[in-house]
């Protein structure tokens, strides 16, 4: 009986976390596109909900300080974008912030009208010498 309840509880949790699952899949795709050869990617995350999602990706290692990270994932705090941090790959979860900090931000993933949206800024990809696989090229924007 306990097992049945546990199973139902898990099923309910899984159902409510469908969005998180999509988010996880997209981040996995983005990160493997950006770092096809890296076995561990160190990430600093601003949004605690995103932190939970990223932490569930096996090859992601969450760091507590931006300076130790390979990738910064910001949400709304543009103060974090110091010149030093701008030298790192920065992903953003807000279109407005991407547009505002387009010199620094490499790209981003955000929910827009209930849909997942991905953007990579071509200029900043070049800056970091990043080459995306063919299937990800559709998300590259030359300007905003």
């Amino acid at each position: 009986m306990i097992r049945i309840f546990a199973l139902l509880f898990t099923a309910v949790l899984l159902y409510s976390e469908e969005t998180s699952q999509i988010q996880k899949e997209i981040y996995t795709q983005i990160l493997t596109s950006l770092f096809p050869k890296k076995s561990v990617i160190k990430i600093w995350v601003e949004n605690p909900r995103t932190l939970l999602v990223l932490n569930s990706i096996p090859f992601v290692h969450i760091v507590s300080k931006p300076k130790n990270a390979d990738v910064l994932v910001i949400y709304k705090n543009s103060k974090i974008l110091s010149p030093q941090n701008c030298n790192k790959i920065v992903l953003c979860e807000s279109y407005k912030l991407i547009k505002k900090e387009k010199e620094c931000i490499t790209g981003g993933f955000f929910w827009h009208k209930g849909r997942p949206n991905i953007i990579f800024l071509e200029k900043n990809l070049h800056k970091h010498h990043l080459h995306l696989p063919k299937e990800m090229e559709q998300f590259i924007e030359d300007e905003l």
């Binding site: 279109y95 547009k99 009208k113 849909r115 949206n117 953007i119």
Partner: peptide, 25 residues
């Protein structure tokens, strides 16, 4: 021309897209 869908107008009260902003559909 790249096959991306971009906003011309948006009457949404929230999550409004900007003119020419790409939307992944």
């Amino acid at each position: 021309h790249r096959g991306h869908y971009r906003y011309l107008l948006d009457g949404s009260k929230k999550d409004r897209g900007e003119f020419n902003q790409k939307i992944d559909v």
